[in-house]
Design a protein around this nucleic acid. Sequence first.
DNA 1: GTTTATGCAAATTCTTTGCAATACT
DNA 2: AGTATTGCAAAGAATTTGCATAAAC
Lengths: 133, 133
Amino acid sequence: MDKKTRKSRKSLTREKIINLLKEKKTALTHKEFQDFFNNEVDRVTIYRALDFLVEEGKLHKVVNLEGGIQYALCQTCTHEKETHSHNHVHFSCLKCNKTTCLENVTPEIKLPKNFETTDIQILISGICDKCNE
Amino acid sequence: MDKKTRKSRKSLTREKIINLLKEKKTALTHKEFQDFFNNEVDRVTIYRALDFLVEEGKLHKVVNLEGGIQYALCQTCTHEKETHSHNHVHFSCLKCNKTTCLENVTPEIKLPKNFETTDIQILISGICDKCNE
DNA sequence: GTTTATGCAAATTCTTTGCAATACT
DNA sequence: AGTATTGCAAAGAATTTGCATAAAC
């Protein structure tokens, strides 16, 4: 169904996804949702719920350095759909494996003459503050 | 076979891959190689040749904003394997669809306290200089 | 009652593995 | 001759599609 004309209803799966993301405070892959839900939710349902939430602007996709897709609940992203911006940094810790948004890091990138930026995605892998003691 | 002990031989597929990348001057996906080779080369062979070249350090993987994997021939990357670094910018033009390395752009990213960087990948999509007139 | 959300089966696509044949050195 | 490369078949993983049932409004 078309995104525009569709009327959404209460969906247990979508609620579970949002709640899990709030609890874990990290971006998760489709497989991880499946595992956390103990396979009680059909994978197709998870695929569809994730797509729905991305379309709605509640989640966004994060691509990790290996090309794997994770879904994140970004504070700054969830509010205003129009100014929905991704030029912040996604950090993936090699130790605890958590992927998070570094909301406050806003890098400056000077492009050569005549290049125009539409979207930026920055992926950093390394050790996060919690694992680095 | 192990990367270390292997002795490489002349490979038509690998040559074709390198030549195509030099000609196109853009990062390509596995599928694009297949198409450009008119399916004359088996896809498995392409997979293996690409892996080989990445291991050898001749190519590197670029993950695009949708999670698709492309293979690029970066000037700065091809030479010294040890200093092989990816913290430069990959630019993907929305008009001509070419993905290129902006070799000279070296952004400064200040991470919060106690974060340690191992690898950075920066993807920018927009309009490239050639399309922007 | 109508439309959305879900589950199951199956189709499709992407990638990897095994093995025999071929080609390079 | 010995080993790396290639092609083919097939296995395996990831994702999508179709349709019937269940749930929301």
